[in-house]
Amino acid sequence: MKPQYLSLKAAMPAFSRLAKQLAAAAGVALLIPSVGLAAEDVDSFPRQPIKLVVPFSAGGGIDMMARIAAEKMSEALGQNVVVQNQGGGGGVVASRSVVQAAPDGYTLIFHSVSSAVVNATVRKDLGYDPVKDFVPVSLVSQFPLVMIVNPDVPAKTVPEFIELLKKNPDTYSYGSSGIGSGIHLAGELFRKLAGVDIQHIPYKGTSSALTDVLAGRVAMLIDGVPPQVANIKSGQVRALAVTTTTRSEVLPDVPTMIESGLEGYDIPFWVAIYAPAGTPKPIVDKLSKAVNFAMHDPKSIERLKAVGAVGVGSTPEELDVFWKKQLQMYSDIVESSNIELSN
């Protein structure tokens, strides 16, 4: 029996890839059981560096958070966790490559809410199943978005802005990083809950939208707190509200949307780590513990706090519940707003 067990063990990587391809062709999820995974395999994992794929370019906020997590995960696991940036398609290119990787714990993806959830609600050309082809590992961190307006807009609060929009239909606009982007959906939720008429202007990126807000060509933008803190504190833009149920520590004087009268408005920006479907549960659990170690490290906490983010950490099960609720919320926004993204 022992030689036969070792032979099967040696064949597992190739078997996993083949089985995954067959399952994808049949349109069903692959679930490779971890039964029979030798205890020494889990104990010795990882025996080589782990690749953490970031589906966006280097230098941005998501990349920064990935590197904060990777540094302390490396310490917890005793192996380097190497960040690899792979942009394109709003996260689709990287997601496809990770789906095709061996489900052995050595290739992970650093999903954002945009690449993990928003893509699943607005795109039909993904080439993978965003729910069935990934296994949740751990929520990493989250931070609020913030509604900002050009200082010349005659409104200093959300209620005043809503009143302004209602008195001047078809007059004001808001920018986003593109049709179907998370920022677009955040704007549509505001439009729906506030019952206002405000025109959506899509751009190819947030920076272009911000340029027009600063110039006064667009009235409003909803963006992440970290990249907007400096603009808010310098007075280049005015912050009206943050999008989470609690205020941001770096913007303590800015109320939440709910405090501003928009009951039910709760849109955090979050990032989380996932593995390819079929990754053995004991390895997923070990990776999850490493993420939690990273997010509770005092150095990580301070580095995230400096940019307005909060380290979270979670079990795989907690992330699974959380992101499926997020998926439902964004699906509801897309449906009520009749948003369609062409293939």
Rank of each mutant, 00 (worst) to 15 (best):
S208K: 02
L287V: 05
L304N: 04
P55M: 02
S177F: 11
G60V: 00
V82D: 11
A186V: 13
G187Q: 04
D129F: 10
V93E: 05
P151I: 12
M12A: 15
V42W: 11
V242I: 08
T121A: 15
V98P: 11
V312N: 07
Q326N: 12
T121L: 05
Q326A: 15
L18H: 08
P316S: 15
G313T: 04
E188H: 07
Q79L: 05
L193A: 01
V98M: 02
V81I: 12
I109T: 07
P226M: 11
E340W: 01
I109N: 09
F56Y: 02
V307A: 14
K124T: 01
S177C: 10
K51I: 13
R191M: 01
V122T: 03
G205L: 03
I273E: 06
S44F: 06
T243W: 00
V93R: 00
K233R: 06
F134C: 15
G205Y: 04
Q86V: 14
V140A: 09
K167G: 14
T206E: 14
G195M: 15
S207D: 09
A116R: 09
V291F: 12
I222N: 03
R67P: 02
G89Q: 04
E263S: 03
V137F: 13
I179A: 03
L185H: 11
V237A: 10
V93T: 14
L37F: 13
A58G: 07
G175W: 05
S181I: 05
R238C: 07
V98S: 08
A101E: 06
A215D: 00
M220A: 11
S95V: 08
D320C: 09
L240H: 02
Q228P: 07
G182Y: 08
K72R: 06
P151K: 00
M73V: 02
V254M: 13
S34W: 12
K233I: 15
L77C: 07
S207H: 13
V53F: 00
E40R: 09
E71H: 05
G180L: 10
A66M: 01
R17G: 09
L214Q: 09
S112K: 00
V93N: 01
K2I: 05
G59D: 01
T171E: 12
A194I: 08
R238D: 10
Q228S: 14
G224K: 07
Q86T: 10
A194D: 09
V307T: 04
G90I: 00
